[in-house]
């Protein structure tokens, strides 16, 4: 029981242990072959979940009820607009990145204004906004299938000694965001607002600016992920963000961030993202049918949160 209590307090360790177990099970099944490739693939795919997951983590950390449901739509819009804008030309990539971030700023600003002016729960605000954003993406990107600029495609798929370059950049980025959370005024403000918005205001924190930054940050990361994903997968598609709605929330929670707000966990995002990918790989390797795969994915998410969530209750 002591081990459980120890792990319960450090919920993110679960995700890494689970990741290792799933990987071992897969490799054991294949008789030891392909273990390396599986890890490489996991890193290549997990990075996108990590990027949007970090944005989602900041949002969720600002307190109960805060969640960004517009991530998939923002990814779709960013992918559609930037691939069309860059039009396979390498020299347009810089502009593409700027536009992707710009779209993020726009959506984030819109989300925040809805929350603030209409005083509606963020779930509903970001959901309603995502309808509008998704429509824009559909109207703009209908029938488009433009290849990404070669340089972008190369960058997003490049590997050095089996380690995807993009994932390596992602790890650096994760460390930076960890420092932002723990050591900057903004990060402290996010944690304070997440614990008690009113107390944060009375402690001299600019609550509204903190929330604004957070929603903009999340949308900017979604915009960036949309651009990178369209480079990685050879062009954008309108539904490419779909799976990231569930994935972004799942990695935050499985990664040990408190859904009640005020406590975030950056390394856990990586563990959870790798875990989710490897889980599907494992089930595929075992030859599970689509239905069974879905059921097991769902049950394992619930099992993980049940085990990790227990520690949280003890603290209260």
């Amino acid at each position: 029981m002591n081990v459980v209590a120890f792990l319960g307090g450090r919920a993110w360790i679960w995700s890494f242990i689970a990741t290792a177990l799933v990987w071992l099970a897969t490799v054991a099944f294949t008789g030891g072959t392909g273990g390396g490739q599986i890890l490489t693939a996991a890193l290549s795919f997990a990075i996108f979940t990590v990027i949007v997951g970090i944005g989602q983590m900041f949002v969720i950390t600002t307190g109960p009820g805060n969640v960004d449901l517009s991530i998939p739509a923002t990814m779709a819009l960013s992918g559609a607009v930037t691939t069309k804008l860059m039009d396979t030309q390498n020299e347009m990539i810089a502009l593409g990145v700027v536009v992707a971030l710009g779209i993020g700023i726009g959506v984030g600003l819109g989300n925040y204004l809805l929350i603030r002016l209409l005083r509606i729960p963020p779930i509903i605000a970001t959901l309603s906004a995502s309808f509008l954003v998704q429509s824009t993406a559909i109207a703009y990107g209908r029938g488009l299938r433009i290849k990404p600029p070669p340089l972008l495609a190369d960058f997003t798929t490049a590997q050095v000694a089996g380690v995807p370059v993009l994932a390596a950049c992602g790890i650096v980025f994760t460390v930076v965001m960890g420092v932002v959370l723990a050591r900057t005024l903004y990060g402290r403000s996010v944690l304070a607002v997440g614990q008690n918005m009113r107390a944060a205001w009375l402690a001299g924190i600019n609550v509204e600016r903190t929330r604004l930054f957070t929603y903009v940050l999340s949308a900017m990361l979604a915009g960036l992920a949309g651009l990178l994903l369209s480079g990685f997968s050879g062009g954008s598609s309108l539904n490419m963000g779909e799976e990231y709605l569930l994935a972004s929330i799942a990695v935050v929670v499985i990664g040990g961030t408190s859904v009640a707000g005020g406590r975030a966990n950056v390394p856990g995002i990586w563990g959870a993202a790798l875990f989710l990918y490897l889980l599907v790989t494992m089930l595929n390797t075992f030859g599970a049918s689509a239905g069974l795969r879905l059921i097991l994915t769902g049950l394992i998410i619930i099992a993980v949160i049940t085990l990790a969530g227990g520690g949280e209750q003890q603290k209260r």
């Binding site: 569930l246 799942a250 059921i295 769902g298 049950l299 998410i301 619930i302 949160i305």
Partner: peptide, 12 residues
């Protein structure tokens, strides 16, 4: 999160 997980289960 729990219902998100269950949505996979129902669909499966």
């Amino acid at each position: 999160v729990v219902t998100l997980g269950m949505s996979f289960v129902w669909l499966g």
